[in-house]
């Protein structure tokens, strides 16, 4: 066979494989939009569920997820950014740095349900926070740390080394240099990473199963020590635990969850592409 024919066949196979990856994405989104969009109404988004979740809306689940996600970023962002600063600006190439890097790789790889167990053992039981928003948010925060560290580190590394040299050569201290001539230029990249991590946290179910999630609550949570309903967990229970729920309600819930996650992703992507265009160095 001629080599060019071979190449044609090979490339066609590669293309087919790519289609196999991309088609399911379109399919999943198509199914959710087609079946879920018509279930969305203002009332669905803003009322409490009733009749054992079969009627009413998903308001408390949305609110619970927003609480969880915002509280988790409060913990993970400062620690994550400072860890990235340490790795990128202070760390030398030694054993400790290698250990940190390995630890991050591992944190990123730990199963989400194992995070759930960990949160249960440490926050709920040992620290006596109980099954609460605080426990869930802390669990999600640790889980998201690798994402934030990695993204922030990339953002810091993309600031030209010369900015640091200039600042140091003018007699500024190391921290002043980082604070004034590195961080300001890394902020958009760090934000992008933070938003992506938020999106991920919003969709996670296993880590919140035993740390915060409630099957049903008649009232919205009022403190961080309360349990909360959460959107992904809500989708799980209405699609596996409660019979006779209209399929449209399930799809609409999935639609809202995917909608929240994708909106955050899109914001992050837009931020990233604008950052690339605006880059002034």
């Amino acid at each position: 066979m001629k080599t060019t024919t071979k190449q044609k066949i090979a490339f066609s196979i590669l293309f087919l494989c790519t289609i196999i990856v991309v088609l399911p994405v379109l399919f999943v989104l198509g199914v959710i939009i087609k079946n879920g969009a018509k279930g969305i109404s203002w009332q669905f988004l803003t009322t409490m569920p009733s009749d054992g979740m079969r009627q009413g809306g998903i308001y408390p689940a949305i609110v619970g997820t927003l609480y969880l996600v915002s509280l988790s970023i409060v913990f993970s962002l400062p620690v994550g950014v400072m860890a990235a600063i340490y790795l990128n600006e202070y760390a030398k190439d030694n054993l400790l740095t290698r250990l940190i890097r390995l630890a991050i790789v591992n944190l990123a790889g730990v199963s989400s349900v194992v995070y759930g167990l960990f949160g249960l053992a440490l926050f709920v039981t040992f620290m006596k926070f109980g099954v609460s928003i605080l426990s869930g948010a802390l669990t999600l925060a640790i889980m998201n740390l690798p994402v934030i560290i990695t993204a922030s580190r990339e953002a810091l590394a993309s600031v030209p080394y010369s900015f640091r040299e200039v600042s140091l050569s003018l007699g500024l201290s190391r921290w002043q240099t980082i604070r004034h001539s590195v961080l300001p230029f890394a902020i958009p990249g760090i934000l992008t990473g933070a938003i992506l991590s938020l999106a991920r946290a919003a969709g996670e179910t296993a880590p919140i199963l035993f740390t915060v999630a409630a099957f049903y609550l008649p009232n919205l949570p009022v403190s961080v020590f309360d349990q909360a309903m959460a959107l992904p967990y809500h989708l799980y229970i209405i699609s596996t635990q409660i019979p006779n729920i209209s399929i449209q309600t399930r799809y609409a819930t999935a639609f809202v969850l995917v909608g929240i996650v994708f909106t955050m992703n899109i914001i992050a992507v837009i931020l990233r592409s604008r950052l690339r265009k605006k880059k002034k160095w």
Binding site: S162, S169, L170
Partner: peptide, 25 residues
């Protein structure tokens, strides 16, 4: 470094205003 200033090979201005560049240090 306050006493010994340095000018680099390529003009290393920071992507901030002219004024802010001068008063940076």
């Amino acid at each position: 470094r306050k006493n010994i200033g340095m000018i680099f090979a390529l003009p290393q201005v920071l992507p901030i205003s002219i004024y802010d560049n001068v008063v940076y240090g």
